[in-house]
Amino acid sequence: MTDTNDNQDPSRRDFLYITTAVFGATGAASVAWPLIDQLNPSASVSALSSIEADISSIPEGGSMKVAWRGKPIFIRRRTKEEIELAEREDSLNLPHPEKDLDRVINKEWLVVVGVCTHLGCVPIADSGDFGGWFCPCHGSHYDISGRIRKGPAPTNLEIPPYEFVSENIIKIG
């Protein structure tokens, strides 16, 4: 193995070692990748990543919970007062500053992922100190724009990608 015992050109031998090692590593990686990637969402899970919700039945001040990718989505039809409150509070010193207008497509409808940004619990509607949601697990309070106001959660409730297909249908995902 060592070049003290043979008179072969060491650089030629090194080349063979390195080539073998590189081929071996590439082969191992190409076998390892399928074993890792199989853990990722399968085609059937990914296929469910878009849903449509009929919002015609929600009264003003009411809300609806739909499931998207296994997570609840809160769709809330906000009252005039609630919209005004959310916009007035834009100017406050918020933990995660975002304007209410940037969080909605249509001011009347707030669509958020109903998963606390702390550790993933589902917050309870119409509770907490700020008229929005309250997470029972570790005590995060969200306002009527889904913004974090108090508690351990680091960010505002996430806004899913969505669009209004028609006046009464929202497509999420």
Partner: peptide
């Protein structure tokens, strides 16, 4: 996502 094999 890799650990869960999905989004939840």
């Amino acid at each position: 996502t890799l650990l869960l094999g999905g989004y939840s």
